[in-house]
C-alpha cells in the first residue's frame, strides 16, 4: 500500500494571494502609459506539497503570466506569493537567486528554450554552474544522470539541439529544469507544441519524476483534455481571473461555472457519431485592456442574469474545496 500522505493532508508549498499584473500600454513621444492590459487581475490559490495544480484557459487569459510572476520572472503589480512560507515578492535579489534553485520552469517551445550553439549536456549544466553547485566533472555527471531520467542516453549530451526531435527537446528541457533538484516546477504548456502521439510520453515522464523526487507542479494548458490525467486539482481562468477551482474529479463531472461547462463541451471526441454541435458561445474573448463590467464572462454567457452585468461575482468556496465565481451558483 502507498503509505505516502495524500496531497490533501500535506502543507501548502505555494500560496498565491490576490496576484495582479498589469502591463502598461505606452504611446506617443513621451511614451506615456495610455492604458493597462489587465493580464492577471486578482488571482488567489494554493498548491500543496507534492500536488499538481492544472491551470487552464484560452490564449491571452493570463495563465502564462501567473506562472512567470510566481517565479518572479516578471515583477508583479500587486499581491503576494509565498513559497515555503517565504514571501517571494519581498525577497532581496540574493535571497531570490538562492530561492530560484527550488523553483524551475519548463517552456512551451522546446525549440526556442535551448541554446542552439551549446551541446545539450552543457545547457543542462548551466543552472548548476550559475548556482555554483559541484565542480565541472560532477556537473557533467549530473547532466547525464538527468538525461537518463528523461529517457535519453549519455552520448546525447554532446549533441546540439537541432539534432533532436520536438519531443526529445522537450525532455531535454525537463532534464535541465530537474538538474537543480527543485521542489516546484511551472510547466507552461509543455506538450502543446508536440504531436499527440508523443504527448503522453512527456506527461508520463513528468509523472514519474514527480513520484521519484516529490515534485510539485503548476501545469498550464489551454485545453482541459491535456491536464485531466496529470492534475490533482484544476483551476480555470478567464480574462485575468480564476472562475473555478476544484479537484479534478469534480471539475470534469460536475462543473459549476458556465465557462468551464462551455470549455468541456467544446472538447471534441474522436468518434464517428461525434457530429453533434458543441456549445456555442457568442463572440470572442474580450480585450483584457477593457474587460466587461460585472462578471467578465457575462457578454458570452448563455445564462447571464441582470445582476451579472452590474456586479462582479466573488470567487468563493461554494462547496467544500470547490471555488467558483458566478451569480448562478452563489
Amino acid at each position: 500500500m502507498d503509505a505516502r500522505p495524500q496531497p490533501s493532508q500535506k502543507p501548502d508549498l505555494v500560496v498565491v494571494k490576490n496576484l495582479v499584473k498589469y502591463f502598461p500600454v505606452r504611446s506617443g513621444l513621451l511614451q506615456r502609459t495610455v492604458a493597462q492590459v489587465k493580464a492577471v487581475d486578482g488571482v488567489s490559490f494554493t498548491i500543496k506539497d507534492g500536488e499538481t495544480l492544472g491551470l487552464v484557459g484560452e490564449s491571452g487569459c493570463g495563465k502564462t503570466t501567473v506562472g512567470r510572476t510566481i517565479l518572479r520572472l516578471i515583477e508583479p503589480t500587486a499581491g503576494e506569493v509565498y513559497f515555503n512560507r517565504e514571501n517571494i515578492f519581498a525577497m532581496r535579489p540574493d535571497a531570490l537567486k538562492a530561492m530560484r534553485r527550488h523553483m524551475q520552469i519548463i517552456f512551451q517551445d522546446p525549440y526556442a528554450s535551448l541554446n542552439p550553439r551549446m551541446p545539450i549536456g552543457e545547457s543542462i549544466m548551466e543552472g548548476l554552474h550559475i548556482h555554483k553547485i559541484g565542480h565541472p566533472k560532477e556537473r557533467w555527471e549530473i547532466a547525464i544522470q538527468m538525461l537518463k531520467k528523461v529517457g535519453l542516453e549519455e552520448y546525447h549530451a554532446r549533441r546540439y539541439p537541432h539534432e533532436f526531435s520536438g519531443g526529445q527537446r522537450q525532455r531535454i528541457g525537463i532534464a535541465r529544469a530537474l538538474a537543480l533538484r527543485p521542489k516546484f516546477i511551472v510547466c507552461d504548456e509543455p506538450v502543446s507544441a508536440l504531436d499527440v502521439s508523443i504527448q503522453s510520453q512527456v506527461l508520463n515522464i513528468l509523472k514519474d519524476l514527480q513520484r521519484e523526487f516529490g515534485l510539485t507542479y503548476l501545469f498550464i494548458a489551454h485545453n482541459l483534455s491535456v491536464v485531466e490525467h496529470i492534475s490533482d486539482r484544476v483551476g480555470v481562468m478567464y480574462l485575468g481571473k480564476l472562475v473555478e477551482l476544484t479537484d479534478r474529479e469534480t471539475l470534469y463531472r460536475e462543473p459549476l461555472h458556465p465557462y468551464t461547462k462551455a470549455l468541456l463541451s467544446a472538447i471534441p471526441i474522436p468518434h464517428p457519431n461525434a457530429k453533434r454541435d458543441r456549445i456555442i458561445l457568442k463572440g470572442d474573448v474580450p480585450s483584457p485592456l477593457n474587460p466587461p463590467r460585472g462578471c467578465r464572462f457575462h457578454p458570452r454567457c448563455p445564462w447571464a442574469k441582470d445582476i451579472c452585468a452590474r456586479q462582479e461575482p466573488e470567487f468563493k468556496e461554494v462547496r467544500p474545496g470547490h471555488w467558483a465565481a458566478c451569480w448562478l451558483v452563489d
Binding site: 499527440v196 502521439s197 508523443i198 504527448q199 503522453s200 510520453q201 506527461l203 508520463n204 482541459l224 483534455s225 491535456v226 485531466e228 490525467h229 470534469y252 463531472r253 468541456l264 472538447i267 471526441i269 474522436p270
Partner: peptide, 12 residues
Amino acid sequence: VPRLRTNVEPDF
C-alpha cells in the same frame, strides 16, 4: 488521444 472522464490513460 486523451479522452475525457475515462480511466484509460492515453498511450504514446
